[in-house]
Computed example of a mutant assay.
Amino acid sequence: MKNDIDSKFILSVFDKIIQHGEKKGEEHFLMGIKVYTDFDGYTLFVEDAQVQLNFGFHNKYHFNYEKEEHCEKFIKKLKAIDDEY
Rank of each mutant, 00 (worst) to 15 (best):
M1T: 07
M1Y: 03
M1L: 08
N3W: 03
N3E: 14
D4Q: 10
D4G: 02
D6L: 07
K8Y: 06
K8V: 03
K8E: 13
F9T: 05
I10T: 06
L11K: 15
L11V: 01
L11W: 01
S12A: 08
V13D: 05
F14L: 04
F14Q: 02
F14G: 01
F14D: 02
I18T: 05
I18K: 15
Q19W: 00
H20M: 01
H20P: 00
G21E: 06
G21W: 07
G21I: 05
E22Y: 02
K24V: 07
G25E: 06
G25I: 01
E26Y: 03
E26T: 05
E27A: 05
G32L: 03
I33Q: 02
V35Y: 04
Y36Q: 03
T37S: 14
T37L: 02
T37C: 08
D38T: 04
D38P: 00
D38G: 02
D38H: 03
F39C: 01
G41I: 09
G41Y: 10
G41V: 09
Y42G: 09
Y42L: 09
T43N: 12
L44Q: 10
F45H: 13
V46T: 14
V46L: 15
D48A: 12
D48C: 09
Q50S: 15
Q50K: 15
Q50G: 06
V51Y: 12
V51S: 13
Q52K: 15
Q52R: 15
L53C: 09
L53R: 08
L53F: 07
N54T: 15
F55G: 07
F55D: 08
F55W: 11
G56T: 10
G56L: 09
F57T: 10
F57S: 07
F57N: 10
H58M: 13
H58S: 11
N59G: 00
Y61M: 07
Y61E: 08
H62S: 11
H62N: 12
N64T: 13
Y65S: 05
E66C: 00
K67A: 11
K67N: 12
K67H: 13
E68G: 01
E69A: 11
H70C: 03
H70L: 01
H70K: 08
H70D: 15
E72S: 11
E72N: 12
K73G: 05
K73D: 13
F74S: 11
I75C: 06
I75D: 04
I75F: 04
K76R: 14
K77N: 11
A80S: 12
I81Q: 05
D82P: 00
D83V: 01
E84N: 08
Y85V: 01
Y85W: 09
Y85C: 02
